[in-house]
Design a protein around this nucleic acid. Sequence first.
RNA 1: GCGAGGGUAGCCAAGCGGUCAACGGCGGCGGACUCAAGAUCCGCUCGUGUAGACGUUCGUGGGUUCGAUUCCCUCCCCUCGCACCA
Length: 896
Amino acid sequence: MSDAGYDHAAVERRWQEAWDDADAYRTPDDVEDPTYVLGMYPYPSGKLHMGHVRNYTITDAYARYRRMQGDDVLHPMGWDAFGLPAENAAKERDTNPRDWTFDCIETMRDQMTAMGFGYDWDREVTTCTPEYYQWNQWLFRRFHEEDLVERRDAEVNWCPHCETVLADEQVEGEAELCWRCDTPVETRELEQWFLKITEYADELLEDIDDLEGWPNSVRQMQRNWIGRQYGSEVDFEIEGHGPVTAFTTRIDTIYGATFFALAPDHPISEELAEEDEEVRHFIEHEADPDGDEPNGVETDLTATNPATGEEIPVYVADFVLSDVGTGALMAVPGHDERDHAFAEKMGEEIVPVVAPEPEDGEDPEAPDVDDAAFTEDGVLVNSGDYSGLDSETARERLTEDLESAEHATQYQLRDWGISRQRYWGTPIPVVHCDDCGPVLVPDEDLPVELPEFINTTGNPLDAAEDWKETTCPDCGGPAERETDTMDTFVDSSWYFLRYVSPGLEDAPFDLERANDWMPVDQYVGGIEHAVMHLLYSRFFTKVLADHEGLEHREPFTNLLAQGMVQLEGEKMSKSKGNVVSPQRIVEEYGADTARLFMMQAAQPERDFDWSEEGVRSTNAFLARLKEMVEEYAAPRAAEDASGEEPRANGYDGGKDAVASYVDAEIDATIAIADAEYDDLTFNKALRETQDLTRTLRQYAEYTEPHAETYERGLSAVVRLLAPVAPHLAEELYDELGNDGFVVDAPWPTAEVDRDYVEKRRRLVENTREDVRDIVEVAGIEDPERIDVVVAPEWKYDALEIAIESDADNLIGELMGHDHIRQQGDAAADYGQDLQAEREALERTLGPDEEYAALESAAWLLEREFDADVRVVYAEEVDESVLKNAEPGRPAIEIED
RNA sequence: GCGAGGGUAGCCAAGCGGUCAACGGCGGCGGACUCAAGAUCCGCUCGUGUAGACGUUCGUGGGUUCGAUUCCCUCCCCUCGCACCA
């Protein structure tokens, strides 16, 4: 045989055309509840990379598997088509973002088709078209009506050179430079639009518990991101400034609060800066919220500790962050590490007020906090009436007793600022009127379409004067359009709903159908979206459930975060120059090879190394399989054509023991592969499939195969491979004489369960290994004859009795059975073995099943040792041979 | 620091209470086929062993159990996420 491969280009082209002609991947609108399989839609950057190929091969394979199982399947694709790179590319190439984006889409769509991904292209969604983004605007209005939109000042990253806001990810390194022009980034206060995701913080957090089809890592990341913390808010009176609220999770330590600290941008700090030179100097020059060292300056103010009544000094300190808690904190150096460090630096008092839980009967002893804070819960000391309480009780009591104190919950999650000072996004549908302020564009005037692109340094929308000038929808007076566009995460927060009814003109999605079809059954994408995209999508889904009648509160039932495709342990990246181009692989080896190699290389969620060697051997495997099928099918087809009696040329062996072995292996493979496909562990399913292929080849080499059995095997292999290598599978399915597509073929079925399959295989494997052991250890040069002897029936009975029995004396119980007792010493010996293994006993196959399994596998021994092999029942051999025979372990006699 | 996930034979990597000296792949060794190479196929790949055995292994040290690679605890190391979060 050769490793020359096969003409993959011809095969792939042929079936891609056939699928296209037959509209094979169309999902009609009237199906009831299709299995919804979705890969995260890509940003159309120009070319597919290996990450895309892996992502979409996973969804495609799963979609095809479900379909062969008889499900209706929804498997759409679309484009996350807005975003800054298009603007940059347009500038570089002197074109415009729209043309550039559509070029990229076309290229990538062609590449996807070349990969054989079976999408319903009639449902394609492209977010940069007004037909799509009008619904972003409509949703913005709806959110606004439900009081989920807010306009307020926000600090943003601003590049003065590019004149635009940068996302946090676009600010690079410690020095905080713009990713494109290396200009130091500034912060600016800008009026921004926010979506109030924090209104849903509790539900978003609590529902994570029910997302059992999601990886734990993603669930945990979302929990951390939302960051809910229970604590208390309590007021400290600052002379001349009234009560100042501080948030704390440790109000039990309030007796140890020896100073108070304010964020540099706390309103009181800013007031102080106006008259206090030192404070101003600190705020303007020394405060470094990013530094490791806690810095601060003492003010002339004092605050009253509401628990002790003591006056404590007030600092302005840079480790106090205005967006954490209330931007003011009570500092307890005895029980907080950071406060401790700061107190040491400033020479403030450090008082222990919580002691470690004492041993029974002993009094709590205040810990030594001179060198380090004691940060755990314990028993209160030095805390007036509260001394002696445990931390938890003390927190409850103090929150109740202190007049200004109340329970409070803090979240790390912030509202979602969606304003972007960029061109290539959804225009925020707002008009600014001098008299009326910001006014939302009414529904009937939507969409607000993007004007022509203007190549300018700043925001092109700002430069589009004609577009910008408009009239106020409320008063009719002159007004200006909002020139900010929406974060592209808005687009992706609901695109999975648009696929349900992509062309719908009077709503973002068909509610009834969405209720039937949603949620997405299997979502697949990169871990980099663990928080943002997946959290925003959950948020949108919940809002749509509350206000638009969607009957689902979570968008994605099962989530798979796929691993990376690496090269020599490193992430592929352009800058490292270690990128393997999918295009090249497809040209050289074909799409099926690329897909099969990827799916068998590792479990989908794991990283794995690309290996050219692996790709070649995968390609060789497919070529060999093709040859096998052709060798079998071609002569039959020729005979059919010539009108002669069909005769399986060279495949007219009988349905003998070997055939039954192969038959059992076919069943075993199907049973295992089926379960593994269900789990998306394609690598294991494919390993089994390749093993079966090898078994079939061995079969054909060893003997004249039984045509029916052989064909059943080939047919099973082809269909088990079809989800992953669809083109070649179609070709071979066709060659095997089937009508219709393998895409629509029924998934092979097997009437065996895995437990049986595994017992049978283990018996055969163990027996073969035992024979090898004996031959080697006994130094048998050339075995003439091998007898494999199934244990006598009474031993199976004894085993069964032993498993069922809970008697102390097993041997006694066994001897209670006449037919066992009659075995005399043999029964006693075996009984002792059973007694010794008592706790570990397990049912084996029955004697006849074992006989059949061994008989059908005898050819393997014959072939390996070139010896006569007999499988026999116990009755046929001498008693002395039988002492080693047990259920699950035949006696072996070798003669040389 | 907090949280999550990991550490398995030369390498990659399954297993997650007994079927485990531990699936599979790569690499290495030997054999079949071939004039030869490649491909394919068959074995071996912790140690000892002239009949299927025994001994020592699954990051470290303990524990639970008749029995632990699998469960619990301690410590060490790796990867990821969050982090001066009150």
